[in-house]
Design a protein around this nucleic acid. Structure first.
Lengths: 255, 255
DNA sequence: GCCGGTTGATACAGTTGGTTACAATTTCCT
DNA sequence: AGGAAATTGTAACCAACTGTATCAACCGGC
């Protein structure tokens, strides 16, 4: 982290984005911006963002949703911008895991101060440590997924190659065992996309993953279908946390 | 896939209940209401509730207590109604796990907006929190249903394949043994649908399930018909809880 | 550019479950 | 008791849903 931090500004108002971008870059930050969730996710995939400034009030996916998404899928501090009096948002925002918030209208200098403070905090105390008990190995039905290595080892000890999509789908399931996940949710959780009308890509992905991990893919034991509902991961999952301070090789999803 | 969400309004004032019920159903929601904790619990047993609107100020069990109860026993988002200025309640409410709150007096349209927002959030991002003490195995008359695995094993130890609908119906019964459930309730509990006039799908589903688990489907021992009333599951059900193996915390540490 | 691997789209076959229709059963009413 | 009406059981049908083979677009690495 020798060079300046890279800030992502997410706001639906173009003028605010431009204002903030200009102001922040004048103050030595690298800045990207996004007008909504889709763009945000795209940028997160292609750039190493250090901090996100996120407006709560946005059409479509609101800021809280996106904040939670970031929390779930990335490891990047978030500062929320809330409208005056939206105390709910403020409190919920912090509960969801925002690192700070600012009430609009705000003084840009104030934002600058918060950004520096949050960056200082998150650098001195790597968030990896804050993120409680992120398991390093996940075991299910005699299989083991070594999360950091993205390596899946079968009950016989054979390493099964997982493609990027396989891995994303599998870990999405492993984090939510026994929970029925709709295709929409799976699509959102694995690739951040929203489903097209006749989108069958999740079915395909499930089918492919089943071929790799199910003994008999025709009668799956672990990934069960819920007609009209989606899929469930039914095997018992146990997570093992090692106390290795590790830098996330994990966040760079397929770019 | 979704039809209209089913909202439960809990308030001790009859006029508020009626007002909200009317307003919400006019806006396309299905609504039930309860005047207190007892009724609330009863409804939660017999209907598939998607969201609860809960008044904090109530005689007897207050809203915060009930909110905590819901959090611990169900997986349903809660919106709290608090009196003006009761900031304590609000904050405690959110800490207890309410998903939003509204200060009385409020504009019904505001409530509507919050409801939609919470529903959107809870649908796009399923909460990972799991209900504690959820039985893992349910045994009835020498049969065993492995809940997480969605697998049913007969007295001879044979695994009987259950379709998604079979499973939903069976577990609905197993959770409510000796309770007469009307077709309407069963339909709501199994698929969240509301019955059409000549809806016989539950009868069919019962018939199909009987063929799988009754020794003699013509004279059922477990799923009995209550003419004019619905169906009852009459076998004795015992549940076995294994200690939760993996309480994966992606739950954020409250600041 | 070529090659192996990955992933989404498409197509088609196999399943599921809601609907319908009708038979069987129960209730109710003379 | 006899018969009509209401209720329930279930077979059969079919639309909707799901599994997966196949193909095409794409991507990274030589």
């Amino acid at each position: 982290m020798e060079q300046s931090a890279h800030i992502l500004v997410v706001d639906d108002h173009r003028d605010i984005r431009e204002l903030l971008s200009k102001y922040l870059s004048k103050n030595g930050f690298r800045v990207s911006d996004a007008d909504g969730g889709a763009k945000m996710r795209q940028i997160l995939k292609t750039a190493a963002i250090d901090l996100i400034v996120l407006d709560v009030m946005m059409p479509g996916e609101d800021g809280l949703t996106l904040c939670r998404y970031v929390r779930e899928n990335e490891n990047i501090p978030v500062i929320l911008l809330t409208a005056l009096g939206e105390e709910t948002d403020r409190i919920i925002g912090l509960e969801i895991g925002a690192d700070d918030y600012l009430t609009k209208p705000f003084n840009p200098r104030e934002l600058l101060a918060r950004i520096k403070s949050v960056l200082r905090r998150s650098q001195s105390m790597p968030r990896e440590a804050q993120k409680p008990d992120e398991p390093e190995e996940l075991t299910f039905d005699d299989w083991t997924l070594y999360v950091h290595q993205r390596e899946l080892v079968s009950p016989d000890g054979v390493t099964v190659p997982l493609s990027a999509a396989d891995y994303r789908l599998l870990i999405t399931f492993l984090k939510r065992p026994t929970m029925v996940l709709s295709r929409d949710q799976l699509l959102d959780l694995t690739s951040g996309r929203t489903a097209q009308i006749f989108d069958r890509s999740i079915d395909n992905q499930v089918s492919r993953l089943r071929k790799k991990i199910e003994e008999d893919p025709k009668t799956p034991k672990m990934i069960k279908t819920v007609r009209g509902g989606g899929y469930v991961f039914t095997a018992r999952v146990t997570g093992k946390v090692e106390d290795a301070p590790f830098d996330h090789a994990d966040e760079e999803d397929a770019s």
